[in-house]
Design a protein around this nucleic acid. Structure first.
Lengths: 352, 352
DNA sequence: TTGTAGGCGTTATCAG
DNA sequence: CTGATAACGCCTACAA
């Protein structure tokens, strides 16, 4: 057997020096089952078109060898990666985690995997994360929000990559948008507070320049307050829009600035809970002296004392819908409506 | 040019019918730069070994064409995927999100990407998620906890995949473990409560059968209570160990069962916060009549009223350390200690 | 420092 | 329904 070591061998022998020792290839399965490689491939991907008997033999060989298809090879050959790239602002917020689980639930049953990255609320970082992902040939992209670097928009449109923007509605989506109306949500909170008799509203939340969606809620809230003739809201922006730390001190500044505030809209529930707690420390009665509304309906919202009135958003559902739209597209169906507007809901509890 | 359409062409021409229209290959860059493909590859991966001038020409060509290397091809050729598979119990808990960000922070600078999946606290699901990931040829694996399906352990050891188990310490890790001592953490809480004068302790938390790490905290707590001569803890297990909903009703059951409870250990902060809130509703003074300690030091813990005494765990740090160990290994360094014990810390605030 | 040859494991294509 | 053949795009090994 004086054969050069790199000569292609058909299975169990020493094999080429590049092949990974012990890796089982489709070829090995084929040999054991007494069929060709392509038949094994068919059994794995489209069993319906393979004869019953052949299929059984192949399945058995697969089991016996513990064969796992090499998807890198598959991707290369088929130009299909079965990979979806997702970029969210942060993983630390449970709201995006829900959306990711929604995406994953729906996509994994269809055999797709998720690559998840985070942008830290920066369009630049988003672009660079995305660039890094591109090399893996994702078949679709999910982005958060509708504000992106122009370079990214161009890239996506040029490549015609199916793209879903979630958590917001776009006038002119890159491709598809699945979200809800943040402006309307803000307005809805203003309505609720106004009806409850609030005259001097305030807002505690993220820096509008950093978080576009929170800024829209703020804008909707402010506009509606004005329309209803309330005093213009006192706004206390925070650097980190999710930090209870900042919410606590921000709340104190707010009361110092305008002691007559009788209604507070917190741009998310983490802030709202922190505010309720600080109100208690300052002996400000909620909702007696001040009504407080949050946003997001986090798990704890229903359980703090007083229970938090807040806006419930379809986090998980957005993920599922986005996934569905992508799968429809992958299966060649047409795009349908470009913007899908899911609904939010004001959940009235005790705090307002 | 009566050339068959599938003849390999060198770039701009019609090309084979399988090639994706408009995709730019390394070959195209090479042609534009007037070098060979392998030189382009070197410029991208090991610029140091390429002549200054050549490098510049190649970089320019890359920019001009907007070339993005196809990592599926790279993976296939090099047998290196630059992919790390991570499985956590759930994405909904911020504690694992921290760890994932820690992993990602460290690995992404080294050019690795993360595939993240979740097991829902089930060893079976963990295995199936992992199986799905295997096809992408991950170079390393990160698992949560030390309880895994035997099939998974076998698989990992056989393939010699670098594996880190996080969030717990193992007697016999599959490969490497980076975590902290959950048993000791529970004991530490018992010490704290005992020193504060607690005599009738209780525990609120997840079903020990479902969550091994929480079960260890419980075991440590119970053992230490006994050692210190306290009454055996009254335990109220919850089905979903992260649910404030269940915590609220569980707390009520607890007080009904044993009205003289004067110290409560909640197996995580979400439960602890819910318990504090329910205590307020029941007019049970915390810490006056009952001391409450949480676990995890969630963002809100420091801001509820009363501020929550809890155990801080190194979530982000575990991710970073795990990543470092993996990178060390990838760079051929030896494994070092098999079990790395990071420290936790009891943070005393107002609730106990 | 750069290039040539050929393989990595799979699937598209077309023929039987 | 099954198989032979040739890509897919890049990188390792070796040569120059």
């Amino acid at each position: 057997m004086a054969r050069a070591p790199w000569v292609k061998t058909s299975g169990g022998e020493a094999g080429s020096r590049r092949r990974q020792r012990g890796r089982i290839r489709i070829e090995d399965v084929a040999e054991l089952a007494g069929v060709s490689a392509i038949t094994v491939s068919r059994v794995l991907r489209t069993p319906a078109i393979v004869a019953e008997d052949t299929r059984r033999r192949v399945d058995e060989a697969v089991d016996r060898l513990g064969y796992v298809p090499n998807l890198a090879a598959g991707t290369l050959a088929s130009l299909k990666s079965r990979l979806v790239a997702v970029v969210v602002p942060t993983l630390r917020s449970s709201v995006y985690a829900d959306t990711i689980q929604g995406l994953s639930d729906e996509l994994s049953t269809a055999g797709y995997h998720l690559m998840v990255g985070y942008s830290g609320y920066s369009a630049e970082l988003e672009l660079s994360v995305f660039r890094a992902f591109m090399g893996r040939q994702p078949e679709a992209v999910v982005l958060t929000g509708v504000e992106h670097s122009p370079a990214l928009r161009r890239l996506l449109r040029k490549r015609k990559l199916p793209t879903v923007e979630i958590w917001d509605l776009a006038d002119d989506p890159i491709d598809i948008a699945v979200g809800f109306d943040n402006f309307a949500a803000g307005a809805c909170v203003a309505d609720h507070l106004a009806k409850a008799g609030v005259r001097h509203p305030a807002v505690l939340g993220s820096d509008p320049a950093r978080e576009a969606r929170a800024a829209k809620r703020l804008a909707g809230f402010t506009a509606r307050c004005q329309a209803r003739g309330l005093r213009a809201p006192v706004v206390e922006p925070l650097i980190d829009g999710m930090s209870p730390e900042e919410a606590e001190s921000g709340f104190r500044r707010l009361v110092a600035r305008a002691p007559d505030i009788d209604g507070l809209f917190c741009l998310n529930d983490a802030l709202a809970i922190a505010a309720i707690m600080e109100a208690r420390r300052l002996s400000i009665d909620v909702p007696g002296r001040m009504r407080i509304v949050g946003f997001g309906d986090f798990d704890l919202a229903a359980h703090v004392a007083p229970r938090l009135t807040t806006v419930r958003v379809p986090g998980h559902e957005m993920g599922r819908r986005a996934a569905r739209r992508l799968l429809d597209r992958a299966e060649g169906r047409k795009r349908g409506q470009r913007v899908e507007d899911l609904s939010f809901e004001l959940v009235q509890r005790e705090s307002a």
